[in-house]
Structure formats: C-alpha cells, structure tokens
Amino acid sequence: MNPSTQGLTLHLWPSKWNLPSIEPSCIVAAFYLQLALPGRFSIQECTNPDLSPSGQLPYLTHGHHTVAPLSSILKYVAALTPASISPVTGPDAPEPGFSADVDVLLDPSDRALRTAWIAHAESALGDLVAYVFYSIPANYAAITHPTLSSFYKVPQSYYVPKRICQAHQARLQANGLWNTPGKRLRQKTPSALTRKKRKRIQSRYIKAHFSASGLLGDKNFFFYDRPTTLDLVLAAHILLLVHAPLPDTLLSSLLSSSYPTLLSHARRVLAAATPTVPVHPPERYRLSALLPYPSFHTWWSEPRPPKSEEEKRFERMRWRWIGLAILGSVGYWFIWGPKLRFVKVENGDGDENLAIVVGGETVGLDIGDEADDGVEEEVDDNANA
C-alpha cells in the first residue's frame, strides 16, 4: 500500500532498537493498528512533528482525513467500519460484524478501569521514560542525542535534538527530575551518591506505577486472551526502557529483579502486536523543509495534475512575453540608455579617486567645490553599462 493512496497511513518517529518507534505514543499507535487492522495500513516514518495537526507525532492520514493526537487516533480507528477501510478482496476481506475496536469485548466496568490505568501509566511511566532518556547525562550523551541527530542532516542535526530535549525539560523540572544533561555530558561514571539518588527516584516511580502488576497477576494480558489498549500502553514504555542500549543499566536491572512478570508481559505484547505492514523511511532533506508553516510545505510538495494543451499554450505565451520584456529592457539600456564612464578625479590634495559619469554628471563621489580645479582623466570614453 502506497502512503499516497487513499489507505490508512500512520506517521510516526522512525523505528529503532527492534521497536516500531523511539516514542511511546508512536509505539502504542503502531501496536493498536496492527491488532485492529492487520495488513490494512502502512507506516510512514517522519521526523517533522510540525506536519501533524497537533504538532506532535504520531498522526494518521486516511484519504482526506488527518487525525491526531494518539487518543483521537485510537477513537477514529475503533469507529472504522469495513466500508470506510481501503477495499480488501479475497481471504483478507473483513468478515461480517467486523470491529476495529481492540477493546470491543470490555464491559463498562472494565472500560472505566482501563481508562484510569492508562491515564496513570502515561503520567508516571511517561515521566520515567523522559527522565531516563533526557535527564540522565550518560544516556543522553551516548544514546538519545546521537539517535536524534542521525534522523537529520546538517544544519538540522545540530539544533533539532536540543529543541526536542528542551520540550521535555518543563515536564521534568515540574517533577524534580531534571538534571540539566547539557552541563554534564562528559560524566561517564556517576558518583555513588548520584547512583543512590537515581535509584530512589526510579524506585519511587516504579512502585507508584507498577502496582499494575497486581492487576495482571498470572494472566497473559490484563483483561482477556489478547492485548487491550492498557496492555499496549504499559508495554510500550517498558519496552523502550529495556530495549534501548542505555549505558546506565540501573533501571533495567531493577525491572528484571523486581518485576519479571511485567517484562514477560511486555515481550508477549511485542510478539502479538509488532506491525507486519510496509514501512516507508522518512523523506530526504529538501529545501522545502525550511518553510516555516506546514501549509507552505504541503503546497510545495503536493503533486501537480497534468496540464491540458490549452494551459500549455498559455504558459508558452506567458514565458514569451516575459522574455520579450526582459530583452526590451536590456536593449533599451544598451542602445538608448544613459552612457556611463569610469573616470579618475584628482582632488585639491592630489589624491585620485574613481568616479562614474552618467550623462555628463559625476556620481559616486562627493568632490564639492574642488571639482572645478580637478583634473579629469577618462578611462573608457565609450564604456556602457
């Protein structure tokens, strides 16, 4: 499926570390579409969040519709019917009663529980992921910054990663998790005091959220025998924390030793929901990427319809008129325009200066009353512009 067709196309941050993306909400969107519409969508990797209506990735395009952010994407996909999806024939055609809602079997009580836990997960685990990738100096210097820089070419590779880091700064500062990694990029081996402080922070956030392990118990998934949205949200955050080759392994070790059940759950979700659809790499850097507004970029990049013979004829006539106007202007200047001469003018002090004579008037030099006493030497009597 080509992303330029009328089919469903999910736009998200590029994949890395054997995950669909480097950002939790993008991973959740990719997992959800794989479970809801297997084989009926495509993925377009993107590095320009400004193309999204919300200014953040992911976003979904479906024909003339553009949907963002993640919560709106999930609602839009869940409400799709077989008639609204790109036509699929043969054995892959939707069955009667088809539903794209991953949580279709949940009763009202389970839906309320799901909504509460998702909000808690996105808040607590979202802070933890941002802290690990953007606030721990060793991780930011060795993994986060090089990964973001690799998505761009010069000059964007120099300033875009810093802008993304600054976007997380306010959130982390409000929670007391900001370590100003830009000032500590060279710190390779944190002191024992620093490690103890980080362990307290990570333990507090893990215990605050991973009480969800009690809800999971011995089950493979939270509610029934296939992942729901809650499974996807929880797994997306945990997978990023354990799959990325972070130099600081304190958190991954803590997860492995204290919460092996949640690690196993995250890996089951990855095996069940990894997208198997075409993935299109990000567009190459183009001059149009410097345009400040998405509408300008869209206008620049949109395909142009073929021109009719009448339109081609008028275009040729327009270019002929432009050519004649330019030729006439240049010819008038050379034939009937004022003649220019470059001359040397000597002032009263004996210094020589270069001046231009246009139609008998000297310009480009303020010689005052001393011009009458000066000696004018013509350099090119017939020089024309």
Score class of each variant (00 low, 15 high):
Arg267Ser: 11
Arg200Pro: 11
Tyr159Val: 11
Leu291Arg: 03
Trp333His: 12
Arg268Val: 06
Val233Asn: 03
Ala100Asn: 06
Glu376Ile: 02
Val375Arg: 04
Arg316Asp: 12
Glu95Cys: 12
Val154Glu: 15
Pro53Val: 00
Val129Met: 06
Lys197Leu: 06
Ala79Asn: 07
Thr261Pro: 11
Ala142Pro: 02
Glu315Met: 08
Ala266Glu: 03
Ala236Glu: 06
Arg286Thr: 09
His168Cys: 12
Leu148Gly: 06
Trp321Phe: 14
Leu70Cys: 02
Phe151Arg: 09
Glu346Met: 05
Pro294Asp: 03
Ile85Gly: 08
Phe210Arg: 00
Val132Trp: 08
Asp50Ile: 14
Val67Gly: 09
His280Pro: 10
Ser253Asn: 11
Leu232Val: 10
Ser71Tyr: 10
Asn139Pro: 04
Ile356Arg: 03
Glu378Met: 10
Ser15Leu: 06
Gln44Ser: 04
Ile136Gly: 09
Pro292Thr: 01
Thr261Asn: 14
Trp117Val: 14
Met1His: 12
His168Gly: 08
Gly176Asp: 08
His280Lys: 09
Phe31His: 04
Asn18Gln: 14
Leu365Phe: 05
His65Asn: 14
Asp351Phe: 08
Gly39Glu: 02
Arg304Met: 12
Phe334Val: 11
Pro303Ser: 02
Leu365Pro: 06
Met1Asn: 06
Ala121Arg: 08
Lys199Asp: 14
Trp117Ser: 11
Ala30Leu: 05
Phe342Ile: 15
Trp319Leu: 15
Thr9Asn: 05
Leu8Thr: 03
Leu8Val: 03
Lys344Ala: 09
Val77Ser: 07
Leu10Asp: 04
Trp17Arg: 13
Asp373Met: 05
Ser71Arg: 12
Asn382His: 15
Val77Arg: 12
Ile356Cys: 05
His145Ser: 09
Val279Glu: 02
Ala121Asn: 09
Lys197Tyr: 11
His237Phe: 01
Tyr140Lys: 00
Val379Phe: 09
Pro161Leu: 03
Leu128Gln: 01
Arg114Ser: 15
Gln44Leu: 03
Asn48Lys: 11
Ser15Tyr: 11
Thr47Phe: 08
